[in-house]
Design a protein around this nucleic acid. Structure first.
Lengths: 352, 352
DNA sequence: ACGGTTTGTCGAAGCGCTTCGCCAGCGTCC
DNA sequence: GGACGCTGGCGAAGCGCTTCGACAAACCGT
C-alpha cells in the first residue's frame, strides 16, 4: 500500500540516490561523510548519482540523526555607540569562516535577551554560539557558562574562567599608539576615546585601550589626557576645543572612535591646526578608512576578519570537544601613514 | 534490552513531557501547536510539565516531521558603496520581525553566490529567502524564480514578474525632495547621489531617486543637476566645488548618500556658504542621523524598520502559500528640519 | 431512547538521515 | 588449511517530532 499519501517533498532523498546508484542507503551516507572506507568504484558511482539527481541532504534529518545542526549562532550587538562598519566586518568574516567549516550562521540580536540563547541552544538549532560586544561584567556570561553548548566570545570580560575569548589586544594597541608618538618626540598627547556610554557599560576594549595609553604614557614620560568622545560632529568639535583649551601644547591625538575621525580632522582644520605639521593623529580604525582619509592616517586597525576567523575556528574546536585557550589576544599592528610626524621642538617644551 | 545505548542528549524530549503529564505524545504536540482542540485541564497539565522540565522542542526533529524549518535566510550585500548602517538596521528589523513570527534568521552573504542559495533551499534549511540590495538586472533574480522556495526582495529589479518586492518608493522620494525645495522657491538645485559604482551596478534605488528628482524638477520648472558622489571627504569636497563652479547660483542640494552628508556640510562651510541661509540641504538618510547633524537636517528617511517588517510579513505569507502583491512601495515621508529655508530672492534670478 | 454530531485523546506511521553491528569475501600467517 | 584480520558493503534501529485516522465519551435534538 502506498501509505497515507503525504506529498513527497520533490527533493531527491538519500534513498533515491541509493536506488539510483544500486547501493544501500548507508553506503551513500558513508560516501558523503567519509566516515568509513568505501571503494573508489562505489564512491564514484554514488557521487555520480548525487550530481545527476541534484541531491542535497536534508538539514533537519541530518541534524536529528547526527545531533549536529551544522549551524552556529552569532549574537550581534545593537547598542548605541557601536562601530557599525566594524560589526559588519565581523559578521561577514564569521559567515565566511563558518562556511569554510561547513557551517551556517544564525543571526541573533541581543534584544531577545537570554531567552533567545536558551531557545536556540535547548532546541539544538545550533551547535555553538558566538557572542560579540562583550562587556566586562556581561550578564550573558554566566548564562553562557551554564548553557551546555560551546561558545566563544569576541571581546574579553573581567572573569574569563571557563570561557573562550578572542580579541585584539587593546591594551597593547593603546601602548603601541603611544610608543609611536613618543618615539616621534611627542610629550603631550590625548586620547579621544569611545562614547561615554561605552565606558559606562564597562565595555572591555574601551577601558583596556585607555589603560594601555595611560600605562605607556607613564612609562615614556608622556603626559596623556584621556576623554570620551561622542560620534557627532558638533560634540567632537567641542571636545577638541576643550582639549586645546586645557592643554594648548598638545601635539598628538589618539582617536579610538572611527566615526569621530572625520569630525576630528574637521575640528582641527577649523582651529587652524594642521595634520601632521602641528598635530599628529593616530587612529584605531579599519585600514580602508585610514587609507581614504586626507591625509592618510597612521592607524592601528581592528583586524575584524582575523578575529572572526579565529573565533569560528575556536568554536569549531569546542564543538568537536577539543581543548581551547581561555583567552586569545591578537597583536596590534601599527601602520605608519601621513598623519603623524616628529614633534616640533617648541621652546616652552624644550625648556622644561 | 536497553537498545544500543546511544547517549541521550540530556534535553527532555516530548515523550518525557508526555510521560510526566500522563498523556500521549501527540497530545503534547497538539497542545504546543494548537492544531487541535485540547481541554483546558489537559492543556494546563501539559504546559505545567513543559515548564517544569524546561522542555524546548528539537528544531531538527520538528523541521523533519513538519517540513518547516521555521528559519528564513537573509542574504546581505557585501558590496562597496552600500550604506552599512542602513543595512544593519534592515538586518535587525528582519531578525526582530522574524522572531515575532516564530522564525529565526540565517545569515548568508552574497559571496557564496548562487551556490549558497541552492544549498540552503534544497537542504530545507530555510523556509524562505529574503534578498537585499537587489540590482535592476540582478543575476540572482532568475535563480530565485526557479528556486522553488518563497522569496522576497528588498529592492525592486527591472522585471518583477513572478516576484515579491518591497522598497521605499525612491522615485517618489526624489520627487518629494524637489517638491519641498521648489515650494520654498528654489530654482536651481543639485542631486549629490550615490557613488558612481552604485549606478554602474544598476542599483534600483539610485537610478529611481535620480529619475524622481529629474522628473519633478522638470515638472516644477526647476533646473536640476545630478552627479554621483563618493563617500570620502576629499572627493565630496571636489564634487561640491565643481558643482558651484558649474552653477554658482545653486541654492539647494539633495544629498542621497548618508556617508557624504558630513563632508558636504564641511565643504559648504569651507566655501563660506551657510546652511540654510545660502544653501538648503535635503538628505536621504536615517532620522537619527538627521537629528544629530548641525543644523538638523530636513530629510527623507529610509524606513528600514518598516521595510524589514513588511518584507518578513510578505515572506511569511508566501511560506503559508498565500497570495502577495508583486511590488510594495512605501510612501516616503519628508521631515522638515533646520537645513532648508526659502530661497533668497537673488536679483539675477528674479530678473529672468 | 436512539442515531448523529462534536470534542478530546491516543497510537502509530513516517519525515530523511546517521550509525551500529554484522557478515561475506579475501588475503595472510603460522 | 584453519584461525585470523581486513575491507567494503548491507540492514535496521532509531533521532524527536507532526499528523492522520480511529475511537471512546459526552452532548444533541427528537
Amino acid at each position: 500500500m502506498s501509505g497515507r499519501g503525504r506529498v513527497p517533498s520533490g527533493q531527491p532523498t538519500i534513498s533515491d540516490v541509493a536506488r539510483h546508484a544500486g547501493v544501500a542507503v548507508s553506503t551513500v551516507s558513508y560516501v558523503l561523510s567519509g566516515k568509513r572506507a568505501i571503494s573508489e568504484v562505489t564512491r564514484n558511482r554514488v557521487l555520480a548519482s548525487v550530481r545527476l539527481l541534484g541531491y542535497h541532504p536534508n538539514a533537519g534529518a541530518r541534524a536529528l540523526a547526527s545531533r549536529r545542526a551544522n549551524v552556529i549562532a552569532l549574537v550581534l550587538p545593537l547598542r548605541s555607540g557601536i562601530q557599525v562598519p566594524v560589526v559588519m566586518q565581523f559578521a561577514t568574516a564569521v559567515v565566511t569562516s563558518a562556511r569554510s567549516h561547513d557551517h551556517d550562521v544564525l543571526l541573533l540580536t541581543s534584544d531577545e535577551g537570554p531567552q533567545g540563547l536558551h531557545r536556540i541552544a535547548a532546541g539544538a538549532l545550533v551547535d555553538g554560539v558566538l557572542v560579540m560586544d562583550v562587556e566586562l561584567h556581561d550578564v550573558r556570561v554566566p548564562l553562557l557558562r551554564q548553557l551546555g553548548r560551546p561558545s566563544v566570545l569576541i571581546g574579553v570580560p573581567a572573569d574569563t574562567d571557563g570561557l573562550t575569548c578572542v580579541d585584539l589586544d587593546f591594551h597593547r594597541a593603546g601602548q603601541v599608539c603611544v610608543e609611536h608618538l613618543a618615539s616621534l618626540g611627542h610629550r603631550r598627547i590625548a586620547l579621544l576615546g569611545a562614547p561615554q556610554a561605552v565606558y559606562d557599560r564597562g565595555t572591555g576594549f574601551a577601558h583596556r585601550t585607555r589603560a594601555g595609553v595611560v600605562e605607556a604614557a607613564t612609562r615614556h614620560g608622556v603626559e596623556a589626557v584621556t576623554l570620551p568622545c561622542e560620534e557627532n560632529a558638533a560634540e567632537v568639535h567641542r571636545r577638541v576645543v576643550e582639549l586645546f583649551d586645557r592643554q594648548p601644547e598638545l601635539s598628538a591625538l589618539v582617536v579610538q572612535n572611527e566615526a569621530a575621525v572625520g569630525p576630528v580632522q574637521a575640528a582641527l582644520a577649523a582651529l587652524g591646526r594642521r595634520v601632521p605639521d602641528d598635530v599628529s593623529v593616530v587612529a584605531v580604525c579599519p585600514d580602508q578608512f585610514a587609507e581614504h582619509a586626507n591625509p592618510r592616517l597612521t592607524s592601528v586597525p581592528v583586524p575584524a576578519e582575523e578575529i572572526g576567523r579565529q573565533a569560528v575556528s575556536l568554536l569549531m574546536r569546542k564543538v568537536r570537544d577539543e581543548a581551547t585557550p581561555q583567552v586569545t589576544l591578537l597583536e596590534p599592528q601599527l601602520t605608519v601613514r601621513d598623519s603623524t610626524a616628529p614633534a616640533v621642538l617648541d621652546d616652552r617644551t624644550a625648556a622644561r
